[in-house]
Each structure stands twice: as C-alpha cells, then as structure tokens.
Amino acid sequence: MSDVPLSAQLINLCAAAILLLAFAMLAQRRVLQLIDLFALQGFALFLSTLIVAVKTGQTHLYFSAALTLALKVAVLPLILRRLVQRLHVKGEVEPLINIPTTMLVGIMLVVVAFNVALPIAQLSATITRGTLGIALATVMLAFLMMITRKKAITQVVGFLAMENGLFLAATSATYGMPMVVELGIALDVLIGVIILGVFFFQIRDQFDSLDIHHLERLKDH
C-alpha cells in the first residue's frame, strides 16, 4: 500500500465510511437516528470533497464542499428533524421487507456495483477512481431504502442519500461537476425537500397518517 498516496487513502477511507453509513441507514429502525446517520454521511462526503479539493487545488471544489456542509449536514437534517417533531411521527420505521433480508440484498447490490464500476474506474486517471464503485453502491442502497420503507419521510431520506451517492460519483470520477450544475442540483434538493414537507402535511391531513400505503388509491379505475 505504500505506493498509494496519503490523500487517496484518506478519500478511500471517507468513501468506505459513506458506504458503511449507507448500510447503517438501511438497518436503522428509528427515524431520528436515521436523520443523524444521514447528516453523518453528509459530513463524510464533505470531508472527501475537501480532501479532493486540497489535493487537486480546484477552487470550485471548495465551494462544493462548503455547499455540502451547509446543506447536507446542517440545513436538511434540521428541516427533517423539525418535520418529524411537527408531524409527531412515531419513532419506529416500518419496513416492507424485514431488515436482515434487506441487508442481504444490499450486499448483492454492492457486489454488482463494484463489478460494473471496475472497467469504468480503470478508464479514469483521477486519484479518486476507486470510489466510483462505492458511489454506485451508495446510490443503489439508497434506492433500496426507498423501495423497502413505508413511511414517506424515510423515502425522502433515501432520496437525499441517493443524491449523496451521485455527488460522490461526480467528485470521484471527474473532480466535480461544473459549478452551475452543482448549484442547480443543490437548489433542486432544497426545494424538493420543502415541497415534500408540504406534501407530508397534506397527506397527513387527508389520511391522518404518513403511511404511503394510503396513496395506493391514486390510480385509474
């Protein structure tokens, strides 16, 4: 391992932490702790972006890192916690499939993601190329969380975690997207969460519950 530079090792460490946190989120039963884990994942993402920024000296990555810190570690978890308190969501999240099975499926997904990412990573010449597989795995695990949970709020967390994975892929494979795109996505995520927050209140007013099971009536005939 001595031929791998220190920065690359640190980035790999952060990426591993992100993947671990993704698994932790998949396994977590409590909503508030889920949000904490999400914030932690955001922090790991911030660290890895910062390291890439220091290493490559690209100024716009500093902005990205700052944006990540502000939005994903501070603002979004705060909004989500407020929502949970205001809506009196019960602490437990109810999965559709039991958690051990979900974890097993998750492991399968990681294997698939790594296999798929391997040839792409070899094309890339960046120091962070190893993280591409992890990023893809994070996206898939977040998607899995969205599929297997019943509560609307956990689906939003899953959606945001998916964005984390995409962001990791962007920094690791290409040293970040153009600043305009990044700003756009950050704004989209923020607005998305606010709109979904409004929706939560509407759903609760309509059905007296936040269980998306009630939305199954939304179809023709």
Partner: peptide, 11 residues
C-alpha cells in the same frame, strides 16, 4: 398504485 412497486420498476 403502490409507490414501492413504482420505485422497483425504476430500480
């Protein structure tokens, strides 16, 4: 009508 199923399609 089930959101989980829709998500599954995308997935």
């Amino acid at each position: 009508g089930r959101i989980a199923v829709y998500l599954m399609y995308s997935f």
